[in-house]
Amino acid sequence: MSILIDENTRVLVQGITGGFGARHTRLSLEYGTKIVGGVTPTKGGQRFDDKVPIFDTVGEAVQETGATASAIFVPPAFAADAILEAADAGVQLIVCITEGIPVMDMMRVKALLADSKSRLVGPNCPGLVTPGHGAKSHGGCRIGIAPGYIHKRGNVGVVSRSGTLTYEAVWQLTRLGYGQSTCVGIGGDPIIGTSHMDVLRMFNDDPETEAIILIGEIGGSAEVDAARWALTHCRKPIAGFIAGATAPAGRRMGHAGAIVGGEEDTAMAKQRILAECGIAVAETPGVMARTLLDHWGK
């Protein structure tokens, strides 16, 4: 098992013919992911790299391919529309990679998705990976932009806002010989579809996941909410890291969501609350995996 996606998940790519989308579609295909269709309005009927059928609408693509997940690579001005189209077509898992979507757009999308059966991951996220069992984790499901080969199939769930910091944690685990069940990048924007807590719940219920790394940063209260939930509900060992201890207050640190507003959303405050909730807090980003293994008794 894994969460959200596995080796058999059938995946669409919205924006498959754009430079960014095309590049990562090829990498996912090379990784062994079942990319079954692409969507680019006006290019329906063509094939991507002579292989993957392209459709004009998400509805047609879902009907023809049986896809249950979609990766969105469209430019920011069109991304909210793309998410809503995927939800309308009944796509179960919508992963929005696009960075730079206006927050007002996401506010409306979030309100509209409240009544939908679709789950949104992102936006402004690296996506998800459930590693495969082949060499360098080949044969897994890679939705988004993460490097596939750094993974290894195993029993650690990883959830993080940041892309490269997720890769850092995954690589540390893999080098120490510990694989991952699923790695979820939830995104760095102020309004995102899936929270740290949502992912913790899924890891808690997943029999393959035995331990969890939770990576957060300054701004908002999502990590704190997740930690408080974990204290009373999560049966699995968790290690955490919060980036931004040295960030000056009031400045946006790259991610639109990474800005210290009040006393509760500083790195120090979050680290303290995580520790109070029984999470082993890594002192530096260099020891995220090590901290988990110590806490886990490995």
């Binding site: 940041s162 300054i218 980036a243 790259g254």
Partner: peptide
């Protein structure tokens, strides 16, 4: 000089942890 916002923040943090002072994000 780092790629990715999360890793960039984390790099500042680890410099500080080892007794240095970051000049920038």
């Amino acid at each position: 000089l780092v790629n990715g916002a999360g890793l960039a923040m984390a790099t500042m943090d680890i410099i500080k942890h080892h007794g240095g002072e970051p000049a920038n994000f």
